[in-house]
């Protein structure tokens, strides 16, 4: 499967080189061009496995006077699970796998099926496809729009699934070069969550 993807990406990379040579900023790209851009972005992203990446996240809710701001670390394990360790304003660890969401807080564990939380499911599906470089998976779950500007890039993912759509309007992922900088989830009701990753230590 990996080798197959590499072959796809090699083709897409060629396409990308042609496009970059033309210096394209392409908001109105044809589907083929868009696919090529997506491929190039996906291929650029480096996936640090098992390496904690510090993040800051803001989450809105109409019940809160101001967005909830979280500090913590996120990392991706080789087995595909995504873990989020929140250090402030409280301690909580969230582990997301293809099937479940597990929350640990104050020594207590809560587990639930990921299918019951469409917001988490969309976030996980998008990140997973992106970080695994799985363009096919990305396209099967989302309508994808992409744009690049020099080293910066931006992906807009709109869930195709009707059920998911009711809970997640779109996922916007932007970055520079090999680095994902911001993942923003927008909901139909106007709420949003934005996770920013600190620049690499180097």
């Amino acid at each position: 499967m990996i080798s197959g993807r590499r072959t796809d990406l090699a083709l897409l990379l060629t396409a990308l080189l042609l496009l970059s040579a033309a210096g394209a900023d392409t908001p109105d790209a044809t589907p083929e061009q868009a696919a090529a851009i997506v491929g190039s972005i996906v291929d650029r992203i480096e996936t640090p496995r098992d390496t904690p990446i510090p993040f800051v996240e803001q989450r809105t809710s109409r019940l809160l006077t101001e967005p909830l701001t979280l500090d913590g670390e996120i990392w991706f394990a080789a087995d595909g699970t995504l873990s989020k360790r929140i250090g402030a304003p409280f301690d909580e660890q969230v582990t997301i796998s293809a099937r479940r969401v597990e929350m640990r807080r104050n020594g207590k564990v809560r587990r639930l099926s990921i299918e019951r939380r469409p917001d988490i499911k969309a976030f996980y599906a998008g990140m997973q496809a992106l970080l695994a470089g799985d363009v096919m998976a990305l396209y099967s779950a989302f309508d994808v729009a992409a744009a690049t500007d020099a080293d910066d890039w931006r992906l807009e993912l709109t869930p195709k699934d009707g059920q998911l759509n009711r809970f997640v309007a779109r996922l916007v992922i932007s970055g520079t070069g090999s680095r994902v900088r911001i993942v923003r989830t927008e909901q139909p009701g106007g709420d949003w969550q934005e996770m920013s990753f600190a620049p690499a230590a180097d």
């Binding site: 996240e57 109409r62 969401v101 929350m103 939380r117 709420d191």
Partner: peptide
């Protein structure tokens, strides 16, 4: 703490 994981109007 739940809002650190869940989101959306339905949950609110």
């Amino acid at each position: 703490a739940d809002l650190a994981v869940f989101s959306g109007d339905e949950f609110a």
